[in-house]
Design a protein around this nucleic acid. Structure first.
Ligand code: SF4
Ligand code: SF4
Lengths: 162, 162
DNA sequence: TAATAACGGATAAAATATATCCGTTATTAT
DNA sequence: ATAATAACGGATATATTTTATCCGTTATTA
């Protein structure tokens, strides 16, 4: 019951992209360098973000990833689901149909109470994640990032776009 | 991001135990037979339920598992946490401390906005699971289980306690 | 006293998550 | 034009976690 590491990586990448000047893009390689994570693996994750319509991509020199829409239109749920999918965390294997009391599958028209409660909980989890947007995270980041780190990051970014 | 199968198994086991006559117990072997799951593995899970204080155990012939408290005092969350633990599904690896913009760890006193939003979502998920009790599941089961299956189950159980 | 059953520890097997590699295509700076 | 860059997809490889089994011990009871 754990979200993949890729979620943390890509959400961080998006907050970084959100702070970039318009038209600027960052390659998977550069993003990986910034966060010190495996470049090839991060690239795979960013491709999922691309398929989910969260980021745009541009091939060739000076290409890379940029946000596909305004930060306030990208929710935390969007990013989580792009990496970890949309299936409910509870997987029902229909064990009620097995064993000495099992009856024919067609007797079960609806998921049982257990599955329903689990799905409801999954739903409120997703609803909560939908409440936070990338813009929110960006604002929190701007407010809470230590000045020293902010300077370092700006310096590093400037070195790229010159 | 998936709950272990053990959750489905043990919740089902608890609903079965909830329907048993007082003082009756069912062994892991019998429970496994009823649900057609691997006996040894289910036994491991039931031991976790025991450690969590959800079921009582009795050794020796006619021993086995029984509920440790009234069904209405056992929540779905209790059972989920007994098997899958209490740690938040989002694991923060503190990548903000790494890479060219990283600064000393002591600069970060609080978890960032991403981690906070994730934990909040995890919290509402658990809160929702806490709303459903084993008694609720039992009632739903009694109402929705096909009569044919109910009869089979009762017959099977009767065969054990004679 | 023999059978039963929980318990804990040690593996073993299977499945999934993490990570790397490579060839292809598109793009751009030179 | 050409060389370098970068996303993309597919094919692995490696590590970790989940699932499953096995065994010796202790407690209980018929
Ligand atoms: S009874 Fe509910 S949880 Fe159990 S197998 Fe059926 S749908 Fe799944
Ligand atoms: S910034 Fe937040 S999510 Fe990222 S590593 Fe730090 S606490 Fe974790």
């Amino acid at each position: 019951m754990r979200l993949s590491e890729g979620v943390e990586w890509t959400v961080h990448c998006c907050t970084l992209l959100a702070g970039l000047p318009p038209d600027a893009a960052l390659s998977a390689k550069k993003l990986a360098e910034f966060f010190d994570v495996p470049p090839d693996y991060l690239a795979k994750h960013m491709q999922q973000m691309s398929k989910a319509g969260i980021v745009n991509t541009k091939k060739g020199p000076n290409g890379g990833y940029s946000l596909a829409k305004p930060a306030r239109d990208i929710t935390l749920l969007d990013m989580v689901e792009a990496i970890d999918g949309r299936v409910c965390s509870f997987k029902c294997t229909e064990i009620r149909q097995r064993g000495p009391s099992g009856v024919s599958p067609c007797s079960y028209k609806t998921p049982c109470g257990i599955a329903r409660a689990m799905r409801k909980a999954d739903q409120v989890w997703r609803d909560e994640l939908r409440k936070t947007t990338l813009a929110d995270l960006q604002i929190i980041g701007l407010r809470e990032t230590p000045p020293e780190q902010m300077n370092k990051a700006i310096t590093w970014l400037k070195g790229l776009f010159t």
